[in-house]
């Protein structure tokens, strides 16, 4: 049931820390930069990595969802922001909004923010579908944290509860309860005993789980944990591209390259900015390139 599915792709086989470092770097840079060129470079790089990770279909569902959000961003920016100088469309006067004025600058700003949203969503898509939650929990819960134990248990119970719900519904059907009725209220009422039973059985199970934990000595002493995961050349290579990438991004932001003036008129784009954005994108496209080589050459696959 988990969204994550194991695949024979390079990104899936990376150490969890490395994958998280890559994803966190992209999110941080997308929040730091408002310059559309840099955001576009990050977006292109991320797209390549997502495609190389074999999660294009999942990414498509994220893209469909993001369309609604981008529409809202464009709507609010176009209708309510009056800072732009280049008027593209002048509409009627509305009572609260005033005169509708759609400007080129507000549309460009919406496009820029749309790309930022896509970078953030892409990074989270990669996290959901290409990073194993088990590995994440192993890292976080290694020291016996109660929060992480609760999180791990929840993650395990989630599919179990879905099965329980289906099982109880089936039992009710066998007793002659019909869930096909067209009346929504009646249908809803038929689910009430199911939910009550589900709550009761889940809570009973939680107590059994607690007793099982206690009988295994949970909480008596500091928890021991065994985790051995190799640092492979692929992890080092991806880290060697991500760390300089984030360093470059932060250095650019500190030197005033991250911003872009949308209002009152668009700031002209310089050649150096194009070069620097392409350079930044190269650091983050590296896992996709490595995956390409990994799949193409058996020799490289064995070496890294």
């Amino acid at each position: 049931m988990l969204a994550y599915k194991q695949q024979k792709k390079l990104f899936h086989s990376l150490r969890c820390e490395v994958a998280l470092c890559y994803i966190a770097s992209l999110i941080l840079l997308s929040l730091l930069f408002s310059h559309p060129l840099f955001l576009l470079a990050l977006f292109m790089a991320l797209n390549m990595v997502i495609l190389s990770a074999g999660i294009a279909l999942e990414w498509l569902s994220y893209l469909k969802f993001s369309l609604l959000l981008i529409f809202l961003i464009t709507l609010v920016n176009s209708l309510f922001v009056r800072a732009g100088a280049t008027i593209l469309f002048r509409g009627p006067h509305l009572p609260i909004i005033g005169t509708i004025r759609v400007t080129l600058e507000s549309l460009c700003f919406s496009a820029g923010m749309g790309i930022r949203l896509l970078v953030i969503l892409g990074a989270f898509c990669l996290f959901t579908y290409a990073v194993s939650p088990d590995k994440v929990l192993k890292i976080l819960g290694g020291r016996g944290s109660k929060t992480m134990l609760a999180l791990s248990l929840s993650l395990r119970l989630f599919p179990l509860l879905v099965d329980d719900f289906a099982r109880i519904t089936e039992a009710q059907r066998c007793r002659g309860v019909s869930f096909q009725t067209r009346n929504r209220r009646q249908r809803f009422e038929k689910y009430i005993p199911i939910l009550n039973t589900l709550l009761l059985s889940s809570l009973e199970r939680s107590f059994q789980l607690a007793e099982s934990l206690q009988s295994r000595g949970f909480g008596i002493a500091k928890r021991s944990s065994y985790r051995e995961e190799l640092w492979r050349p692929r992890d080092v290579l991806v880290l060697l591209s991500t760390v300089p990438g984030i360093a470059l991004g932060v250095a650019l932001a500190l030197n005033g390259w991250a911003g872009y003036r949308y209002y009152p008129s668009l700031q002209p784009i310089e050649g150096l900015e194009m070069m620097m954005s392409a350079f930044l994108g190269l650091f983050f496209i590296f896992p996709a390139l490595l995956n390409w080589g990994w799949e193409k050459w058996q020799f490289l696959r064995l070496k890294i």
Binding site: K146, L149, A150, L151, S152, L153, S154, L155, L157, F158, L160, L161, V162, F165, L198, L199, S202, L203, R205, S206, F207, L209, A210, E211, L213, Q214, F218, G219
Partner: peptide, 16 residues
Amino acid sequence: TKVITLIATMAALAGV
């Protein structure tokens, strides 16, 4: 332990 498992169960139920 009971409280921890109960929190986990209720979180899973709320998520479901």
